[in-house]
Amino acid sequence: MRRCLAAILGLGVLLLPACTRRATRPGAGTGEVVAYVSEDQVFSQPVLERFERETGIRVRAVYDTEETKSTGVMNRLLAEKDNPQADLYWANEPIRAEVLRQRGVAEPYRSPAAEGLPETFRDPEWHWTGFSARLRVLVVHTPLKGEPPASVMDLADPRWRGRVVLANPLFGTTTSHVAALFVALGDEGARSFLERLKANGVVLSTSNGESADQVAAGQATLSLVDSDDAINRIRRGDALQMIVPDQAPGGLGCFVVPNAVVLVRGGPHPEAARRLADFLLSPQTERQLAEADCAQIPLHAGVPVPPDVPSLATLSVMEVSWAEVAAKMMAIQPELQAWVGS
């Protein structure tokens, strides 16, 4: 018993320094930065580890999961607004970064590494800055019989009735995409599309990754996912074909979703956070993310990419106002919830 008590006390003593070292806020001091990350850990962790190696600054990260986006880092950032624990948020799409700006969580920062990045992929006041993008693409099960779909609107084509799977539009990039459609098509146009989609027997999944898996397995024929979900599975030999939608002249254009860096207002390590932001926005990081299995598209010009990674220069891109899409995303949540629940 005495040995048990000694062991317990010993363990307590072991933990004590870890607890007291950060008695006020995590990572107090300049050698650490706290990052909340929505980009998949399997792709983002190697980037953060390279940052640690090159700068000697330790990154303490909280990552999102596929299934628990509801209670993910975005909610955590909002919950911690008055008691910020994070220094930087690596968002995997810019709409929620824009929501953070609107909610007063984001701190403006004009990174020198952002020179040369297209203005369309950042907040005009530098509350967030985009880098390495993904496309919203169609995936079809292969071999496909007949004419392949060419537009996002084809998801509502009766030709695919009962064979379409879509990630829950209350979460992730699917929400952003639906909000962008509301902006691009107008409320009535988007509502009509959603109703036709519902009438077409669309099946909802928990994530884009699951949608791609269902199409690869032949459980569905067609879906709308992120390009990294598609390329990742094509590279490992799954039965999928990726189609960049709406490329016809005068069409909607493809919805492009960059990652976004946000500095958290009042974060405990602002200097280290700025260094991490500079690092993430650099061409080297864009190259690393292009070469990884997420196959993301660099926004800096001249960054070499593998042959299966599309180039923005050759694509017709959907033009959107991010602030407008973010406001629309919040406005249509009840409507989307009703659509999901109906």
């Binding site: 950060r22 995590p26 990572g27 706290v34 990052a35 909340y36 998949d40 850990q41 399997v42 792709f43 330790r58 303490r60 990260a61 909280v62 990552y63 999102d64 999961t65 596929e66 299934e67 628990t68 209670t71 624990q85 994070a86 994530s207 990754g209 990294d228 979900d229 990742n232 299995d293 997420c294």
Partner: peptide, 22 residues
């Protein structure tokens, strides 16, 4: 998963977060 402080994720949590496209 919900409450771990930054840098204090456990193995089951790490499995969940790496499962996204891992």
């Amino acid at each position: 998963l919900l409450v771990h402080p930054p840098g204090w994720d456990t193995l089951p949590v790490r499995i969940m977060t790496l499962a996204a496209n891992g």
